[in-house]
Nucleic acid binder design. Structure first.
Lengths: 136, 136
DNA sequence: CAATATTTGCAACCGACTTGCAAATAATGC
DNA sequence: GCATTATTTGCAAGTCGGTTGCAAATATTG
């Protein structure tokens, strides 16, 4: 399925910016921040637009958001099984504490955890911190 | 050991603000953001001072920092075994995606993870997301 | 109590995030 | 293809957390 169909399937209108951001995410090995996207985008687009595009992707289940070590949001394209209702996101992430880059790691089996009474568990991920190859 | 001695042991001068922030962290079941601290502090203190106090605590191994679901730094007092060189922080945290509160969970055994060549692993923690009792 | 090193408060700045609103544009039906 | 409608975009502007430089206040030491 091409990306136009993918956008349509998730109820989003097809625009140049959305198509470009979507392929950017799909072709990246790392999770990208909004300013990463802004810098790498072939065309130029307003920051607010990029903010809303990424937000729309997350809401639509096209991307998920992960906070980097500096508290900045980064986005990575979702597995095809993600939907609006249920993000499939139980993998592990590596966070470089120096440059802030976030990498998806191989899937690992996460331990089950007890939460206090009344708490609702949704998803969980393992966060590994350290230095990436470039910063180590 | 009282908190004055604790500060001294970690190489920090004893000030009213530091003592107050330290007990605040020790008596909280949740990790506190800088503005949480500012609001809960019996005395008033400049936000820059609180920023630096929390930063000093982290550097000294008196508190650790964890990012909440909104990318805001939150601090929790360290186990007595923490030091400047090595934070003991392999437990799990619960992040409420609505109010942003962060709770420490019981210790769990974390799975070992392979990281790409050249990457240096430092610490890792399990992040469980969902809604806390108040928000669910 | 004096000398010194640290800590504090203030002003000020940065970057990420966010909203309201009007203009531009994609989708829909004819 | 064209008009209508609902969405998306860009701009202005504001919020908030994080951060630094510097001078005044304060803790420690002898």
């Amino acid at each position: 399925m091409d990306n136009k169909a993918l956008l349509h399937k998730h109820g989003l209108r097809i625009t140049d910016t959305r198509l470009a951001v979507l392929s950017l995410l799909q072709n990246s090995s790392k999770a990208l921040s909004q300013s990463d996207v802004e810098r790498s985008l072939p065309q130029q687009a307003d920051r607010v637009t990029l903010f809303r595009v990424l937000q729309a992707f997350e809401d639509a289940g096209l991307a998920h958001k992960v906070m980097d070590a500096h508290g900045v949001a980064r986005y990575a394209s979702c597995a095809p099984t993600c939907s609006t209702e249920q993000h499939q996101d139980s993998h592990a992430h590596f966070h470089c504490t120096q440059c802030g880059d976030v990498y998806c790691l191989e899937d690992v089996e996460l331990p089950k955890v007890k939460v206090p009474k009344g708490f609702k568990q949704q998803e969980s991920h393992l966060e590994v911190e350290g230095r990436c190859a470039a910063c180590a």
